[in-house]
């Protein structure tokens, strides 16, 4: 059984996460974030009818995906299996990339578009393994400034 789970790790994880997410939506998110109308309405007018239906569907489909990982017919080599030696090649760059994505909207209001984008672009080049320092700096400075000018001139959008 352990081998089946290992071979279908994505189904196993998606099954568990999906079920928990569906339960969270049904029992916590819907009651706490959807305000019901004070007056009496027909059932099809209720704003929570579709979200509830979807939460139940997520739970059912996730359970089916979870159970199918134990099926002897369902064997596939899974992309979720992570080779320990691939940490530097896969997990680290992906995490760094995600981290820089998340950092961008946080730093943006503090430093403005141009400076944030120059730093952001330089970081991305480094994450992608680009090591030509001269080109790295030139592109990192030219692209954000060029974009800011393009948006201001042609689209009449002024970036802060």
């Amino acid at each position: 059984m352990r081998n089946h789970i290992k071979a279908n790790l994505s189904g196993f994880i998606i099954g568990i996460v999906g079920t928990l997410f569906g339960l969270y939506v049904y029992f916590i998110a819907i009651p706490s974030t959807i305000r019901m109308p004070t007056r009496e309405v027909f059932f099809y007018q209720r704003p929570d009818i579709l979200p509830k239906l979807l939460a139940v569907s997520i739970i059912i489909i996730s359970i089916i995906i979870f159970l199918s990982t134990f099926s002897p017919k369902n064997i596939r080599t899974d992309q979720y299996i992570i080779d320990k030696h691939k940490f530097h090649e896969v997990i680290l760059p992906v995490s760094l990339l995600m981290g820089s994505f998340i950092a961008y909207p946080i730093v943006f209001p503090l430093l403005g578009y141009r400076i944030t984008s120059i730093i952001f672009l330089a970081c991305l080049f480094l994450i992608f393994g680009y090591r030509n320092i001269f080109l790295l700096f030139t592109i990192s400075i030219a692209v954000p400034i060029g974009l800011a000018l393009f948006f201001a001139r042609f689209l009449r959008v002024f970036l802060p």
Binding site: I14, G18, V25, A29, T33, I34, R35, M36, P37, V41, Q45, P47, D48, L50, P51, L54, A55, S57, I58, I61, S62, I65
Partner: peptide, 23 residues
């Protein structure tokens, strides 16, 4: 599952009939 997740994302925001905030 992908379809249901997409529908779920589509429900975030104002309810199209009553204008009630959702999620």
């Amino acid at each position: 599952l992908s379809i249901v997740l997409g529908l779920f994302l589509g429900t975030i925001g104002l309810d199209p009939l009553l204008g009630t905030p959702r999620f």
